[in-house]
Simulated assay, not measured.
Amino acid sequence: METRDPELKTELDAALHARNELGSDYESALVESFLEKVEQRLDTTLDRRVRRHLAEQQVSVARGARQPQPLGGFGERYGFGIISLILAIPLSAIAAAASHTEGLIIAWLGIIGVNAVHAARDWPWFQRRSGHSKSDWND
């Protein structure tokens, strides 16, 4: 397995080793634990990137460069979609375990709804209805 994060690879190896020792009875707990660690790592990485982006904008403004543009470019839109799909995996597992098909349908409708609202913020008719325009972010 080629990975950029050796700590995460070590955690995965430890989870697989524990599964071999403990058996399949503890498999769901081990998977849940590993997914929590992955989610924490994603949150940490995302926070670091957002802080770096904001710092770069502040430096740019301090140097007299043009006003920073609002977030919402290619990276944010697709990054949001990818992260929501990654987080959909444990949500789907929990929903399917708790209430089978109905829970799974409700979970995925929520995921689709969140992504639709996130995508709709850039649509002109949505901005007129909500009373916000892109220039509101520059104030």
Score class of each variant (00 low, 15 high):
2 E>R: 12
3 T>C: 12
3 T>M: 02
3 T>W: 09
5 D>Q: 01
6 P>S: 07
6 P>N: 00
7 E>M: 09
7 E>G: 02
8 L>E: 02
10 T>L: 02
11 E>H: 06
11 E>P: 00
13 D>Y: 12
13 D>K: 06
13 D>R: 12
13 D>E: 08
15 A>F: 03
15 A>V: 04
16 L>Y: 08
17 H>W: 11
17 H>F: 10
18 A>V: 00
18 A>N: 04
18 A>E: 01
18 A>I: 04
19 R>V: 02
19 R>D: 01
21 E>N: 08
22 L>N: 10
24 S>W: 10
25 D>M: 09
25 D>R: 15
26 Y>L: 11
26 Y>S: 15
27 E>N: 15
27 E>M: 15
28 S>R: 14
31 V>L: 03
31 V>H: 07
31 V>S: 01
32 E>P: 04
32 E>Q: 10
33 S>E: 05
33 S>N: 11
35 L>W: 04
38 V>Q: 06
38 V>A: 11
38 V>D: 02
39 E>Y: 02
41 R>F: 02
41 R>E: 03
42 L>V: 09
44 T>M: 07
45 T>A: 07
46 L>A: 05
49 R>I: 10
49 R>G: 14
49 R>T: 12
49 R>H: 15
49 R>W: 10
49 R>N: 05
53 H>P: 00
53 H>Y: 10
55 A>M: 01
55 A>C: 04
56 E>H: 11
57 Q>G: 01
57 Q>K: 08
60 S>I: 03
62 A>R: 09
63 R>P: 00
63 R>T: 01
64 G>H: 11
65 A>E: 08
65 A>T: 04
66 R>S: 14
67 Q>G: 03
69 Q>W: 03
70 P>K: 10
70 P>Y: 13
71 L>T: 10
71 L>F: 09
72 G>F: 06
74 F>C: 10
74 F>I: 14
74 F>P: 04
75 G>I: 05
77 R>E: 07
79 G>E: 13
79 G>L: 12
80 F>E: 15
82 I>E: 14
82 I>W: 14
83 I>S: 04
83 I>M: 13
87 L>K: 08
87 L>I: 14
88 A>L: 11
91 L>I: 05
94 I>V: 15
94 I>K: 12
94 I>D: 06
94 I>H: 14
95 A>L: 07
97 A>S: 15
99 S>E: 10
99 S>K: 08
100 H>M: 07
101 T>H: 09
103 G>S: 05
103 G>E: 01
104 L>W: 00
105 I>M: 15
106 I>E: 08
107 A>T: 01
108 W>L: 13
110 G>V: 02
112 I>G: 01
113 G>I: 00
113 G>A: 07
113 G>C: 00
114 V>A: 13
114 V>I: 13
114 V>R: 06
117 V>F: 12
117 V>K: 04
118 H>F: 15
120 A>M: 02
121 R>P: 03
122 D>Y: 12
122 D>H: 10
124 P>D: 09
125 W>K: 12
126 F>V: 05
126 F>P: 03
127 Q>P: 06
127 Q>F: 04
128 R>K: 12
128 R>D: 15
128 R>T: 11
129 R>I: 05
129 R>N: 06
130 S>Y: 05
132 H>I: 14
133 S>C: 13
133 S>Q: 11
135 S>L: 07
135 S>C: 03
135 S>K: 11
136 D>H: 09
137 W>D: 12
138 N>K: 08
